[in-house]
Amino acid sequence: MNGVTMVLRALHHGEKHLAEHLTTVAERHRTEHEIHHVATDLALWSREHVQRLADTGRHYGLNLDESPDVSDPGVLTMLREKAAEAVGRRPEPGLLLLRDLRDLHVGATENSLYWEMLAQAAQATRDDRLLTLTAHCHPQTLRQMRWTNTMIKNLGPQILTSL
């Protein structure tokens, strides 16, 4: 396994994890409509990245699982929705939301670093397949980072000073 395949594998894992976490955060904060809807949309990007990484990985001899494991049985989804509604009425959800946004930001930042490493390797080796992959996916990861950062900046002062 060379460095490129190691980064592809790490990115696949990171994007899969980010898709799962974005979906969980969207469900957990269902009563915060902007969080719910944007996190759901951003999870779609990470799922697409997982698919593209799996497709690209095959070219490099990797067999990466193509689909993120974000499907839940109906009962678990219903329980999460009810918990989100109940938590939405208590003062602590703000702190939970900030923690979730921080965790999402750290995950997206880690993925961004891997995208950057992959892009640099692609440029050094003139690998058009990797260049195309990184040119499509990395800007979306940067937008995921900017969204989490913006939400922390906007919500943090209000949440932290209202305790």
Rank of each mutant, 00 (worst) to 15 (best):
G156P: 02
L163P: 00
D65R: 03
T23D: 09
Q140K: 12
L18V: 08
L160Y: 07
A10D: 14
L160K: 01
L8W: 03
L97P: 14
G88I: 03
A108S: 13
Q123L: 13
K153P: 02
A135I: 01
E27G: 13
L98N: 07
H29A: 08
T125K: 01
R90N: 15
E20S: 06
E85W: 08
G107Q: 09
V4N: 03
L18C: 14
T56H: 03
Q144Y: 00
A54V: 08
L42G: 10
M1P: 11
K16R: 10
A124S: 09
A121N: 02
L96I: 11
H49E: 04
D103Y: 08
T161K: 09
L160C: 08
N63H: 11
R28Y: 09
L96H: 08
L95H: 14
R28A: 15
L142H: 01
R102Y: 14
Y60F: 15
L133W: 01
L155A: 15
H21L: 13
L64Q: 10
E116P: 00
S162M: 06
L133H: 01
L96K: 03
E81F: 14
L18F: 06
H13D: 09
T125G: 00
T31G: 04
H36V: 07
R126Y: 04
E81G: 10
D128Q: 14
L18M: 13
V50N: 04
M145Q: 12
E27F: 11
G3D: 11
D65Y: 01
A108R: 05
A10C: 08
L42W: 15
H13L: 09
A43H: 04
R90A: 14
E32G: 01
H49K: 05
P73G: 12
A84T: 04
E20T: 06
A122T: 04
D127W: 00
G156Y: 02
L79T: 11
W147G: 04
V25F: 15
T109S: 15
E85N: 02
T150D: 05
V4P: 00
T141H: 00
A108M: 05
G156R: 00
A83P: 06
T134Y: 00
T148K: 05
P139W: 11
R58G: 05
A108V: 02
A43F: 06
